[in-house]
Amino acid sequence: MNNLKITLIAFLGSILWVIHFMSIYAFAEFGCQSNWKWTSGVIMGITFICFLLGLFSIYKSYKVSQLISKETQSTLYFLAHYGIINNAVFTFIMIYQSVPVFYFRGECL
């Protein structure tokens, strides 16, 4: 596995968060303004998909970390382990940030 791939996997959760956050913001602002009734549903759907992808990113970085030797590839080992925590944290952030949508349940206010 090459360096670029390991780096990308390590930051997959962060990239997912950017996509998730931009999407839910856009749907909240644009959907609410247009009185679109599916706004909350779409946001929940996006969150669910991103959550699954986040779990996948944690699994993937865990698998990568198993393939790397700590002694001979210390940088990549660091990056892979960094990736596990990073992806887990951003997966949590995605869920945490989206919690309000369950409170609003279709209302934009």
């Binding site: 956050f21 839910i24 913001y25 909240a28 602002e29 609410c32 303004q33 706004t39 909350s40 946001i43 952030i93 945490y96 940030q97 989206s98 919690v99 309000p100 949508v101 409170y103 609003f104 209302e107 934009c108 206010l109």
Partner: peptide, 13 residues
């Protein structure tokens, strides 16, 4: 006066 739903996401962040 932005939608409360959008505001809530930013509170989370």
């Amino acid at each position: 006066g932005l939608p409360e739903l959008a505001n809530a996401f930013f509170t989370g962040a």
